[in-house]
Structure formats: C-alpha cells, structure tokens
Simulated assay, not measured.
Amino acid sequence: MTDDSGFLGLVDPHAYTSFVGEDWTLESLFEHIESELPQQTILLWGTGGEEQWRIDLSDSPVDPRLPIIRQTTGPITVTGGELIVVNLDTVTMAAQYADSSVADDKEIYGSSIDLPNGDYICTITQLTDSEEDRTHDGPDFHLHLHAGRTSPWSEIAWSEL
C-alpha cells in the first residue's frame, strides 16, 4: 500500500461517512474521523513515515519471531460484507467530493477484505520502522482480525498531529 502522508486505515466503506466538505482542512478531517471512531466505521493510524508498506492480514496473531515496533487494538464493525485498507490520500479524496467514496481505489490497491457482518477486534502491529534498516523479510504491518468487541478509540492511533 502506498502511503504518501504517513497514515493508513481500515474502513467499513458501507458505513463510514466519507464526505466532509469541499473546503475541509486537515484539522476538520481528523475531527470528522475521530467522530466516526465511536461508530466503529474506521481505524486510522500513523505509520511513522511515507513509504510503500507491506500489510499482512490474518486471523492469527503476529509471528512471535518478528520484531514488534508498536501495537494497538481497536474495534471495527463490518456492515456490508467487507472492509478496505486505505491510505490518507483515499480518505481525503472522499472527504472533498460528495460523489466519491473511500472504496473508489480498492480495485487499484486490492485492499478489499471479505468478512461476515459483525463486530471485530483488530490488533495493528507495526513490524518495521521507517527510520531504521529492515531486520526481516516479513510485512511492515500485521492486522489481526477476529470476532469480538472492545472499547472504541477516541483518537487516531500513533498520530502526532
């Protein structure tokens, strides 16, 4: 997944309200995203850099042989049989145009994840640091999804903005 802004996310494209306004600011966009967090329609996290990230999705925890840089857990709800992995560019385009959606680029990135509807716990594990040399050939991020419930996020994870 290409990341030109330092953020990745996991979104329910059928429930997340994409449009913010034609004249949105980064501050208003982040306020909008944070208002969506309690609805469990999006999880957005800072990556620590602008990179081409490799993301592994699994129903199993991260391989214990891989180095864990940081890890967080949050809830997301599937309402239309899928979730999509997004970068902030996708979210911002959908925020600016009422006829755009966060799902617009899912075929380009191959980022759609088919799942039964329901509540999920997502553990996001960052396995590489953009400022350090790679120490393994595995993914940069591991997303562990399993059915369940946990407390909603109140802010964007690992964000310095």
Results as ranks from 00 to 15, higher is better:
Asp23Ile: 08
Gly46Tyr: 09
Ala15Lys: 05
Trp153Val: 01
Val85Cys: 01
Gly81His: 00
Ser151His: 15
Trp45Tyr: 08
Met1Tyr: 03
Asn87Arg: 09
Ser159Met: 01
Trp24Gln: 12
Val91Leu: 02
Ile42Cys: 07
Pro61Asp: 15
Asp129Pro: 00
Ile42Glu: 00
Trp158Leu: 10
Met93Tyr: 15
Asp12Tyr: 02
Ile55His: 04
Glu22Lys: 14
Glu22Gly: 14
Gly74Asp: 00
Pro75Ile: 06
Ile68Phe: 00
Val86Pro: 04
Val20Phe: 06
Gly80Glu: 09
Trp53Glu: 04
Gly138Ala: 09
Leu26Thr: 13
Glu51His: 13
Gly110Asp: 08
Pro61Ser: 11
Asp12Ser: 01
Ile68Glu: 11
Ile84Tyr: 01
Thr77Arg: 08
Arg70Gly: 03
Leu29Met: 12
Arg134Lys: 05
Ala103Met: 07
Glu132Thr: 08
His14Asn: 14
Arg134Cys: 00
Leu161Thr: 12
Ala147Pro: 09
Asp23Phe: 12
Ser60Val: 13
Gly48Trp: 04
Val102Tyr: 07
Arg65Ile: 15
Asp114His: 12
Trp45Ile: 02
Thr128Gly: 12
Gly110Thr: 06
Trp158Pro: 08
Ser5Leu: 13
Pro13Phe: 09
Thr135Cys: 00
Leu66Phe: 04
Gly9Asn: 07
Thr150Arg: 01
Pro116Gly: 11
Asp89Ala: 09
Phe30Gly: 04
Asp99Ala: 13
Ser111Asn: 10
Ile42Thr: 01
Tyr97Trp: 14
Cys122Ala: 11
Leu127Met: 02
Asp114Ser: 14
Thr90Arg: 07
Arg70Asn: 05
Gly110Phe: 01
Pro61Gln: 13
Pro75Phe: 05
Glu27Tyr: 13
